[in-house]
Design a protein around this nucleic acid. Structure first.
Length: 772
DNA sequence: CATTTAACATTTTTT
DNA sequence: ATGTTAAATG
């Protein structure tokens, strides 16, 4: 297939700075691949000169494959080419040149080739907890902060947040003045306060209280310290339309010096601790790579690229963009993305990267050049190109998807008409069915609808075929709803595979492994009871065998096996022996071993730590991806996030229910960061009438956080991502008693559901190997 | 009757 | 902590 005009323009425009607005189904990967091979054909250009950043490792592999197909280039030459995620590239960079980069911020630790990247969130939490208790003992001057923090993991999250914004501590103060970002933005704050505190006009000309005053009602339930102003003082008496702005401004000016010092010190100490223990999380990996490129001209000259392309640009964060700028030798930069599909802000992606690209790179250039010239090229000929032909969806589906941005997230949110450029469908197909269905029992209703669709010529697809199970995807906001749906499908013998991983450590292999780890270390009775009950002994028999803690009376064969296990020196060996004995094989035991091996790499068999790790995993229901779960002809169930980049003939968007989608979940954090407010503490320690010291809510920050309230644009974008996965037919489903405004205010025809779903003959289905 | 208050029900996404 | 909704208020 030949590129269309806009695509061709992007392919030909190899030199210069380009922002490509690539909406869903506009042939983004196709265009990037072609552009890559176009650049490759230039004289003296090899794959080593082109940096292509992708969002996931899978995307990097896929891109590489397609480039090999497209160019016919020798695969061995492109295999080592910098086509990778930022994380992957930065890790390589640090291993090559990063040995003493930490010195730049005063840390006397070294990065070596066996640096570990922490991929397990739980494992890092373990590390962090160890670090935290040590830090607390050594830094008693921050006692008042420790008493307001109930979960250290919140602090860790905060540091990662700062790291993704390029805020980096030095031994004294902040690196390159980056600490100013945690002080907040007074001008923006004043603007927000003003607009939030305007009384609201109704259609009939009445004036309601301001949005802000309505929200501050909840302050009433807070527990403020004695000298805090009364809530009626802040909000005004009944009938006041606005809150008192002078108090809000006073709250903004709260002295946070000590809090910032505390965060600086613990952040710095944790970076130090990480390197001491030879590990970095994803976020810290990026800051050290950034530091290296920032400070070392030689590395920059050696490593920078003639050409740079960044895919999924809407999901990059600030430090990634800065790093990319340091890596660009020339102004040959092409960023490709779609702001409408930016859905990873919880992971600190910054949508401003793409929305304000030009302003950002100009600002960053200034910032990066303030003491010496690091960005040598000039930023002037910046061009925007938008791809506007959609090759995926029918026009009807495209039109509906654009309504995502007009969906209010609650009963009082009023939205301005969004400015969305429209896409034209390349497809002639015009028989799309777009319906919403609701029922008291949502799962069976979806199944029933699917059974109606499958093999039904009324739902003919654009390729001329009648639908089969594998043409259908069910998208969910939460994982748990997806798992529920899979179970409902299983009960009806409808083939459905849940994509997105399983609770690995709650499966049998891990349970038995944990039991043997326990049986061969302290607290062995806990392990033995699981082992013996699993072997078929009843509770009474087990009790008798374990009666005497010091002299267990278990059958000889168990003792022999225990001795065999005690000879193992690595967790992988230990687990392998257990799984072999129990006959566990396949992806689940393999993945279990792989995870443990990755997490406890280099360390001798420390059973206590491993047991804690597994316990924590079971407790938290931690999710791990399993390979090869794909089945023949089955429905695909996945989260909306997981569906990014994919397409299906038929899509269901499910669980559009209150508090689920849009998600209204939010956890209170004692210390919080907001771009406008800066760093704030929401709890304070105070002495109540002489006696003890108590934790109170901080009226200042509680008031402030009402002003920078949460927005729901990302939930609407998530809806947009979901809808635009569909090629031919699109369905929405909700629980009739709990449906959210995303469902009720969606202007789509209501569908009918035929009674209950039928239970299929089991011979119709291929079995799911993981469901046993 | 429009507006405000108070009580009640829920509670993620993951490179 | 936040949204929904029924009851209270003036």
């Amino acid at each position: 297939m030949d590129p269309n005009n806009k695509q061709q323009k992007i392919i030909d425009s190899t030199n210069g700075i380009y922002v490509v607005d690539a909406g869903p189904g506009t042939g983004k990967t196709f265009t990037i691949t072609k552009r890559y091979s176009e650049i490759l054909q230039k004289q003296d250009i090899t794959p080593e000169d082109i940096f292509l950043a992708t969002f996931t490792n899978n995307a990097a592999d896929e891109m590489t494959e397609r480039i090999i197909q497209e160019t016919g280039v020798d695969p061995s030459k492109i295999y080592d080419a910098p086509i990778s995620t930022f994380h992957g590239y930065c890790k390589k960079l640090l291993e090559l040149y990063g040995y003493d980069v930490a010195q730049e911020i005063g840390i006397n630790e070294y990065i070596t080739e066996d640096l570990n990247t922490i991929e397990s969130h739980l494992r890092e939490t373990q590390y962090f907890n160890n670090f935290y208790s040590q830090f607390k003992q050594e830094n008693t001057e921050y006692n008042s902060f420790y008493s307001i923090i109930d979960s250290p993991a919140d602090l860790l999250q905060l540091m990662k947040n700062l790291a993704s914004r390029g805020i980096i501590p030095k031994e004294e103060g902040w690196f390159s003045n980056t600490g100013r970002h945690i002080e907040g933005k007074p001008e923006e704050f004043k603007k927000m306060l003003k607009s939030q505190n305007k009384p609201v006009n109704t259609d009939k000309g009445y004036k309601k209280q301001s949005e802000l005053r309505r929200k501050t009602y909840s302050l009433k339930w807070k527990n403020f310290e004695q000298n805090a102003p009364e809530v009626v003082d802040i909000r005004g008496e009944k009938g006041s339309k606005k809150i008192r702005e002078d108090l809000a401004k006073k709250a903004f000016k709260e002295d946070n010096e000590e809090l910032r010092t505390f965060l600086h010190d613990i952040y710095y100490a944790y970076l130090n601790y990480s390197l001491q223990n030879n590990f970095l999380n994803f976020n810290f990996l990026l800051i050290f790579a950034y530091l290296l490129l920032y400070q070392n001209k030689t590395v920059r000259d050696n490593e920078s690229f003639e050409y740079m392309m960044i895919d999924e640009f809407q999901d990059t964060n600030e430090i990634q963009l800065k790093t990319a700028m340091l890596l660009a030798k020339k102004p040959n930069i092409c960023v490709v993305g779609d702001w409408k599909q930016s859905i990873y802000s919880f992971q600190h992606a910054s949508i401003e990267n793409i929305l304000n690209f030009e302003q950002r790179i100009k600002d960053y250039k200034k910032e990066l050049n303030y003491d010496q010239e690091r960005i040598e090229f000039s930023i002037k000929d910046l061009e925007e190109i938008n791809l506007d032909i959609n090759y995926r969806s029918s026009q009807k589906i495209i039109d509906v998807s654009e309504k995502s941005f007009s969906l209010p997230a609650n009963y009082y949110e009023s939205l301005k008409k969004p400015e969305i450029e429209s896409y034209n469908s390349h497809k002639k197909y015009d028989e799309s069915v777009i319906e919403k269905i609701e029922a008291e029992d949502e799962g069976p209703a979806i199944l029933s609808k699917i059974q109606e669709i499958v093999d039904n010529p009324d739902y003919k697809l654009s390729n001329g075929e009648t639908p089969s199970f594998s043409d259908i995807a069910i998208l969910t906001r939460t994982r748990s709803f997806g798992v529920e749906l899979q179970e409902v499908a299983e009960k009806h013998n409808v083939p459905a595979s849940y994509e997105g991983g399983i609770e690995l450590f709650r499966k049998d292999p891990a349970i038995i492994l944990l039991a043997w780890l326990r049986a061969t270390s302290q607290n062995s009775a806990k392990g033995w009871s699981v082992i013996l009950e699993n072997a078929g002994y009843n509770i009474e028999e087990v009790k008798n065998m374990l009666n005497d803690e010091k002299d267990l009376d278990v059958p000889e064969k168990f003792i022999e096996f225990k001795q065999k296990l005690e000879g193992q020196s690595t967790i992988a060996g230990f687990a392998r022996v257990v799984f072999d004995r129990y006959g566990y094989s396949g992806p689940i035991p393999n993945k279990t071993i792989q995870v443990l091996q990755n997490v406890f790499v280099n360390s001798y068999l420390n059973k206590k730590e491993i047991i804690e790790f597994i316990e924590e995993n079971i407790d938290q229901g931690e999710i791990y991806e399993i390979d090869n779960t794909v089945r023949e002809n089955s429905i695909n169930i996945m989260t909306l996030h997981g569906s990014k980049g994919l397409e299906f003939p038929i899509v269901f968007i499910s669980d559009i229910n209150q508090s689920k989608f849009p998600s209204t979940n939010s956890y209170p954090k004692p210390i919080d960061f907001n771009e406008v407010l800066g760093l704030r503490q929401r709890k304070v320690l105070s002495r109540e009438s002489g006696n003890g010291v108590y934790v109170f809510d901080n009226w200042k920050s509680e008031l402030l956080f009402n002003i920078v309230s949460r927005e729901y644009d990302e939930e609407r974008r998530l809806m947009y991502v979901g809808m635009t996965r569909a090629e031919d037919h699109l369905f929405f489903s909700a629980n009739s008693r709990r449906k959210s405004t995303f469902f009720t205010k969606l202007d789509v025809e209501e569908g009918v559901i035929d009674s209950e779903p039928v239970v299929l003959e089991s011979s119709d289905v291929s079995r799911d190997v993981f469901s046993v």
